[in-house]
Design a binder for these strands. Sequence first.
DNA 1: CGGATCGAC
DNA 2: CTATGTCGATCCG
Length: 684
Amino acid sequence: MDDMKKVGNSSCNDGLLLRMGLNDNKAGMQGLDKEKINKIIMEATKGSRFYENELKKDQQVNQRIERMMQLKEKITTQQLLKAQLQVDKLVIELEQSRNLSNTIVHIDMDAFYAAVEMRDNPELKEKPIAVGSMSMLSTSNYHARRFGVRAAMPGFIAKKLCPHLTIVPLNFEKYGKVSKEVREILTEYDPNFMPMGLDEAYLNITEHLEERLNWPEDKRRFFFNTESTIEKDKGEVNMSAKFNEDGYSSSPILFEDNTPLMDDHPQQRDQSMENSVVFGTSAEEVVKEIRFRIEQKTQLTASAGIAPNTMLAKMCSDRNKPNGQYRIAPERQAVLDFLKDLPIRKVPGIGKVTEKMLKALGIVTCSELYQQRALLSLLFSEASWRNFLDISLGLGSTHLEKDGERKSMSTERTFSEINTAEDQYSLCRELCRDLAQELQKEGLKGKTVTLKLKNVNFEVKTRASTVLSSVSTEEEIFAVAKDLLGTEIDSVAPHPLRIRLMGVRVSGFLSEEEKKYQQKSITSFLKSGKEIAFLRLQPGKSNQEYCTKNSEASPGGSFFDKKRAARQLNSENLSPNETVAKEDSVLVCPVCNSEQKTTSLMSFNRHVDVCLNKGLIQELTEKKDFPTKTCNMENSNRVGGLSRGQQCANPSQGTKRSGVTTSQSVSKKAKSCNSKHTIEMFFK
DNA sequence: CGGATCGAC
DNA sequence: CTATGTCGATCCG
């Protein structure tokens, strides 16, 4: 998004201000200068919990830098020379593989959300506006930016910077519609174009350019949208000017110079079609055409970059925004010229922290990045310095890969402080419910559940747990998340856990391969007509285990719910051995599959352990896989010492991966419980 | 694997 | 009063 989140850092390095304030003000005009902006932000911010946490993070970065500098001190000239040789060998290879044959375009809608809101509400047109809420802004228009109002800034601070600021709430449905309109245009130039969010996209127009060479003019002719409500009076081309809110924006507008549109066909303009325009066949003309069509269709302007790879194209689109475009010719020297004085912060992938670290090494521009390549290869990880090298050579992807399958799905929410376990658990359940719904829309199941917590001091923690069999339903996810939450609550007891955010994520999805396999094993399992045994447990003070004989256990979850609520609310230790499975559930041993006529967990566990040990011995003596009896042990986190046993009990999942998972996650839990007797017994 | 960090939108 | 939500990548232990 064209939001100026990246703010040139330049001179004064007074820490946080640079991060939080906008120091990009063109002096003179109405608005505020850097100093004022930073002062106001600092006043609004100083002493807040947020600020304190920012300071803490800042210190951590400084320590990182310190460690790096110490490392640097130890580097000998010998090492440096050697590194230089190695890196330069790589440079030669990279140089040889440089590919300038593609034409990549990056399209970036200008101040997208704000522009949509202004379009739809003329009242806003002359005003400084931002889209978002009092707590967080998503974007602002250029007018507001002159006051230092920008994306990722809370609205209440923006208001201090610019008291007249109008804050419009987000309306994603609307932006989505507009985005779709834009995409309909883009797809004509590259059916495989890659959208990046609602307001940006990469296109590879290499093929289009070839075809276009043979196109007759008619196919390159487009008409002005006449029935639009826009006030436009004089002549052909001033439509885009209105989007230049301020009249003194430095960016070029679409038709401002005398030549561009008719580049290739200067002769025809007036007679044929009064309200039409013909675009040429060059890349620049194509992109002008795209931007023209976007504007005609949506009344919104876009900026664009043209270059031989995505990284460069993206940086180009930033060059002349808003409502401008820029091209790097497909020549090595053109690329290097472009990079020469470019601040590394402009490079996609280089953020605040990396900028600061590199600056500590005296690196600010891309050419400096290249000069220091040998040093960087000694100070940074392979992935990092190779990336730096690519950047400084101007290398990037020359084709647009379809993004692969998703790797995780999550949901999180911020709220005013919540500090009672009761509310936290019910919130957690709610998140699990929402997440489960989304997961099921995509038919996904994952093995890892991650809980994210942010306390009122803005400190973030994540806690993850990987289970044997994939989860996707509210109950399944919650069963895991609630344990993680419980552990965190316990960890601060007797103090309450004071949080301002909670999130739940599911990852570790099954690959397509695994899906099929699982499908098979499930159906064959069902055919075999066996019962599913469930076994669950919660570590910590509220140990709770039960098995039900029923495969559709706890249908509405109410049973589960009440139990949990009661237990956690009372916050006392129910003796873990008593009162299990009162209702209509029956304990079934997951190993031998027989019903156990007891309601005492302890004796039930004993039985299970015995069964498992039998299995273990058998496995080890026969030295082969455990019999493939499909015993579904979803979520079976039985708390004590079943590390090997679980593997045995669930052979259908017996891949290397799940084996490791099992022994790790269980052995950890085994410590917290005193039931490692299973293991000890075995080794006697 | 789990946890923290970075970066992008 | 009031500092987002979602995702992927990477590094380290």
